[in-house]
Amino acid sequence: MEILQLVLYGTILGSILALGAVGVSLTFGILRFANFSHGDLMTIGAYVVFVVFTVMKLPLWLAIIVSLAVTAALTAIIDKLIYRNFRNSDPVILLISSFGMALILRSLIQLIWGPSTQVYEKGIQLAIKFGGGLRIKPDQIIILVGTVLLIIALHLFLRKTKMGKAMRAVADNAELARLTGINTEKVILCTWLMGGALAAAAGIFLGLDTRVFPEMGWNILLPVFAAAILGGIGNPYGAIAGGLVIGISQELSTQFIDPSYKPAVAFAIMVVILIVRPTGIFAGRSS
């Protein structure tokens, strides 16, 4: 039974990783670089909820919406100020720039909110017990439901809207998209908005599940990247599966190894994937 409980925890962690990895994958698909500031965008998202929900005492759902919007807008502003200037450069310059952006964001977070650890709500939540002794906390239900809703919304966006299809087209072949008359700048803006919102959601859920502190996003960046690579980087659907696999493996691993090595499990899985099938196991795109 303990195993099932770990699988449940793994699914919760996996949901968080999946949301993060989908964001990474979307930006990679369109802009062709691994965004190293994605983790710190997650942290921003988590702190905005801390302000709106914990400090201002507004409802959680409202705080989440505000956070998604603020983080998305911030991401778009960063693009306008910095990343846009590198459109014609080698994408690795973007990667280096995003690494710098990660530190800029983190130091801003530390300046504004200080280095200490915060929680959204004080006190211990009572776990709900159900079938076979499994336990789940109300916050964790929010995470699971929230993730499912966001992923459905993303799916509908990518499949049903003109902009969503254009995003997939640019990910498929950016030059052809341009020749087809697709406004790639608009697609890029849209990608950043979605990437930022998804990062915020992942950060908020991570904050709900654990705690909020300045390094939370950076610390989880490795498993998020591992999930994205596992799913075939650039393929948002694969990233969801990748997130779940990494999340569940990390939780199950605590049966055998010291829990502080959870990120190492993600790394190990990633290394195996890079060796046997670098395009990802979920029918990723070739690079």
Binding site: F36, V92, I229
Partner: peptide
């Protein structure tokens, strides 16, 4: 990683750094 796109090396190297830190 060296036969893959440079992004993979970047990610793998940050992974190594993380593991070493742990």
């Amino acid at each position: 990683t060296l036969n893959l796109r440079s992004d993979y090396l970047a990610i793998a190297s940050i992974g190594i750094a993380e593991i070493i830190r742990l």
